[in-house]
């Protein structure tokens, strides 16, 4: 398995390079740094800008220049001469906190709902969770976030606070801490990100669990006299998780999309807002490392999903 992981990682090198070319072409052809909102720009400023961004060189040499620097960890400077990395780092930390919380909620609620629905098939809980998941799949995430804001923040403002993301006086200087204040601010957004995932995972888990519950080896396990609890947890759940894990790898893109929208609604200074801002400003120097980080995380998460798959199902030989 270690060998498999290493081989996969080696394989991802050409993938990253190809992806970086695609990213570079896509971002370069959709942003225009010289069309900046820069009313005070003088001729020498634009010249300096062109020099800094190597705009006068060919596309290929621009790419090589950028990728060389990027792979050494040099993310460059923005058009306003600020280094890219510190801001990006702060945004990443916020997004990781939000994403992790959302993921915990998604997996926790989604899988639990699915398992209970399957065990108690056709019960009131089953129909309720089926209805709820159709609802969760069909509601636009941004609309759900707005409703949460309207209902919860306006009615129960004492619980979640109407203060901006960085409550003044409480860790507003750095964005690294994950204290009580931060957690309170993250609950609603995390739930907004999670809604669609909960719906999908509960449906998926339910059908996968039903398949397993009707299988022969489960009857054998029961016939051996194993307690029902053990049958469900050790035999059924483990096997039912396999297809769900495969699905979770494909899902990374959807989670990133959900984060972008949710951060925009709740005005959370994470990667989503960072991207939207940078794209609106045509700051492709900021977007390129952002995109590459997304590409890398997609690759790594896919690899992790494959490895987990192997752990859950020893029949699958990873080599």
């Amino acid at each position: 398995m270690v060998l498999y992981a290493i081989r996969r990682l080696l394989w991802s090198i050409p993938v990253v390079i190809i992806a970086s070319i695609l990213v570079f072409v896509a971002v370069k052809s959709t942003t225009n740094p010289s069309a900046q909102r820069c009313p005070t720009c003088r001729a020498e400023d634009s010249q300096r800008l062109a020099q800094q961004l190597h705009l006068n060189e060919s596309g290929a040499s621009q790419y090589i220049n950028w990728f060389g620097k990027f792979s050494h960890g040099d993310f460059g400077k923005t058009l306003r001469q600020k280094p890219v990395w510190p801001d990006l780092r702060d945004a990443i930390i916020v997004t990781l906190q939000l994403g992790a919380l959302a993921y915990v909620i998604t997996i926790g609620l989604g899988l639990t709902m699915g398992v209970i629905s399957a065990i108690k098939q056709y019960s009131w809980f089953d129909s309720l969770s089926t209805g709820a998941s159709f609802f969760g799949l069909s509601i636009p995430p941004f609309f759900f976030g707005l409703i949460l804001q309207i209902v919860l923040v306006l009615k129960f403002r004492d619980w979640f606070g109407t203060t901006p993301f960085f409550t003044s006086g409480v860790n507003n200087s750095s964005s690294t801490g994950l204290g009580y204040d931060r957690l309170i601010h993250l609950i609603l957004p995390a739930f907004t990100v999670a809604v669609q995932g909960i719906a999908i995972y509960s449906r998926y888990m339910r059908s996968s669990m039903l398949d397993v519950l009707n299988s022969d080896f489960l009857r054998t396990a029961r016939a051996k006299g194993i307690s029902e609890r053990r049958v469900i947890v050790r035999h059924a759940l483990r096997n039912a998780l396999i297809p769900v894990v495969t699905y979770s790898a494909i899902d990374v893109g959807a989670i990133i999309g959900g984060l972008v929208i949710t951060e925009q609604i709740f005005q959370i200074p994470g990667m989503g807002v960072y991207f939207l801002q940078a794209f609106r400003d045509g700051e492709y120097v900021k977007i390129l490392p952002w995109m590459m980080l997304v590409v890398l995380s997609v690759i790594v998460l896919n690899l992790i999903a494959d490895l987990v798959y192997g752990v859950l199902d020893p029949r699958i030989r990873l080599d």
Partner: peptide, 23 residues
Amino acid sequence: FLAIPLLVALIILSRLPAQNKWA
């Protein structure tokens, strides 16, 4: 294509016609 984050790709591509004559 399945691995590409949908929304991000759509946002970027939606600006393509604004910058490219051929697009």
